[in-house]
Design a protein around this nucleic acid. Structure first.
Lengths: 146, 146
DNA sequence: TATTGTTATACTCTATAACTATA
DNA sequence: TATAGTTATAGAGTATAACAATA
């Protein structure tokens, strides 16, 4: 069966292909905000916890090397969208927390991102989207047993 | 609803994330063949049609710019895995066709790729995988109304 | 000794424009 | 003039190793 499988039936090919399409569409949709997918993702994570997230956790969630987070946070910090503070309980940690300005930009950006997604996923049944979401979450975060 | 959505529920994020994971796993699995995902994909397409595919079609299927195909085909041609011949019916076209050596390497590579996929997708119900495959195909190739 | 964040570097991938040959 | 392939180049993303501060 592997022998006769066409490339267009290959699930890995399809995932990478659609992932790439969505990524570049979202990058285009984000142009007016001055964000890109990477910096947008960091900002969204910073908004999720009032006390802030440490860079290690951001790196793990995004699947990036911690060294790549530095520049992204630098950029957001310069625009005053996030604050980088030292964790008092462990001074090696830095906590990245969104500012009010950051939250406002995130809200605007989320709308743009959703609109970009819409173009790709409209017409697909809700149940199929939910199954796909759960499957992808299981693969991305195997620890979370849900 | 958009406002409260966490990044880990974002379907675009999940697709890009898993797409990237699979891509890099497949690249690692392909090391013994001397292929990478890109050149592997071109080889598989070249095997699909005995008469060969033109580079424009390869570019469209892979979602790449035609200029990026040139180097990939060069590489495969140097290893005698494909032949690049001129289409007699339209001499602007070049047809990329797999050699016997190319087909043998493809067969070996497919096995490695399937094994790499297995690690990510094992335990996911067949029906869910089929729905996901169909959904992704619909997004990638909207023309094929299937 | 191990961990967080940082810096630096080299490599791959991506996007774009311009050129040639054919139609 | 339009299309297939090619070349060249700049920018973005990726991977790795080494370092300082802290635990």
């Amino acid at each position: 069966m592997a022998q006769s499988q066409a490339l267009s039936d290959d699930i890995g090919f399809l995932l990478s292909r659609v992932g790439g399409m969505v990524l570049s569409a979202v990058n285009k949709a984000l142009v007016p905000t001055g964000l890109r997918v990477r910096s947008y993702s960091v900002l969204v994570l910073a908004c999720e916890q009032a006390e802030g997230v440490n860079q290690r956790r951001v790196a793990a969630t995004l699947g990036l090397d911690p060294s790549q987070i530095v520049g992204l946070v630098d950029e957001l910090e310069e625009r005053e969208l996030v604050l980088r503070t030292q964790d008092p309980s462990d001074r090696r940690n830095k906590l990245i927390a969104a500012t009010e300005k950051g939250r406002r930009l995130r809200d605007e950006a989320v709308v743009r991102v959703e609109a970009a997604h819409g173009r790709y996923f409209e017409g697909i049944p809700e149940s199929v989207m939910n199954d796909m979401r759960k499957t992808l979450q299981k693969i991305t975060f195997p620890a979370a047993t849900d």
